[in-house]
Nucleic acid binder design. Sequence first.
DNA 1: AACATAGTACTACAGTTGTCGTGGTTGAAC
DNA 2: GTTCAACCACGACAACTGTAGTACTATGTT
Lengths: 189, 189
Amino acid sequence: MVRNEARRTALLDAAIDVLAQEGARGLTYRAIDAKAGVPAGTASNYFANRDELMPAVMTRVHERLMPSGESVAESLALPRDRSLTVKFMHDIIKRADADKACYLAMMELRLEATRRPEIREALTRTIAGNIEDNVAFNEESKLPGDRMTVVSLYFAMTGLIYERLTLPDVVATMDLDELVEVMVNRAIG
Amino acid sequence: MVRNEARRTALLDAAIDVLAQEGARGLTYRAIDAKAGVPAGTASNYFANRDELMPAVMTRVHERLMPSGESVAESLALPRDRSLTVKFMHDIIKRADADKACYLAMMELRLEATRRPEIREALTRTIAGNIEDNVAFNEESKLPGDRMTVVSLYFAMTGLIYERLTLPDVVATMDLDELVEVMVNRAIG
DNA sequence: AACATAGTACTACAGTTGTCGTGGTTGAAC
DNA sequence: GTTCAACCACGACAACTGTAGTACTATGTT
């Protein structure tokens, strides 16, 4: 198997775009090659078969969705109150808007996870770890709210982002700032 | 186009199962025929092409997800307090568990909606209407909480069900009863 | 210069899929 | 008992897809 990392990554990024634009149904070797602008047959030089491709895409999505770290540090200079939690939630929404393709690809992969145990295990680890990290972060940073605040906010944000990406017009009529503020305030209790 | 309603519905139900089990990628005429136990070619006698099939499936999903009405009436005999809202939330979760295929199919369709305007419009109407109905119902029934209670609970429940269906192990370690109770209590404020 | 290696381009092929057409069956109306 | 429309089974076919194989190119090593 060929191992030009730059090219391989470019192919995976192309696969993410294809997933977002065409869905799992459109994810073919030829579609990836076309999207990446490489000659037909290239993707199959990098991924032996479709079963090997999907987990690789999933790993790439995970990489791309990692928060920057420096923006977190920046935020932590602010006072640790409710308005900071609100800011964090808005940051998450902004990241989703900025990289829609990645989130949509993850949604395709999550559905794929219902029938592929390897993807399911990897995603479960990622997401469960993410929730635990958030709970620990919230506590260590002395941000307001308890464990349940973080968990219920996680679900609400998941639902909100899911809705915004798949059926934007449902949320379009709502005041996003007000919505996030109320959700945070009540989740904190 | 053929119009034997019973057979058509059976084919659509088969399509829902295929969507849930194999994903949008596996939704082929032959797969539908096989799942419905009818001779190959039958589905194509009922749906001229794939673009006509998808909205039909979506309509059928919508039909199947409608709540029974009598169970609602039954619940309304109970005292209109927080515990009733908790009960309603548990009913929703139960319905999702009882008809996983339908919910999974809807998730596939929601992703399909990002690239098919007809499905998107239909789903947007359905979901937005559903939220408004819930808001009105909550108010008319003098259930506790305001509009924001209903909206934020809607998102939290969407996220929770999404998580439970796609990555059940993430939620498995949580105490579902406690989670729903806290979510309701805080959403009410 | 000769060679080895990794990466790349391209092609072939068998299996699958969407779609269309065609002929057969059923059952009710007359 | 003929007619007719609706329904059904089946096959054909071109287009597309996954996969494997093969030959070409670039680069570095000896």
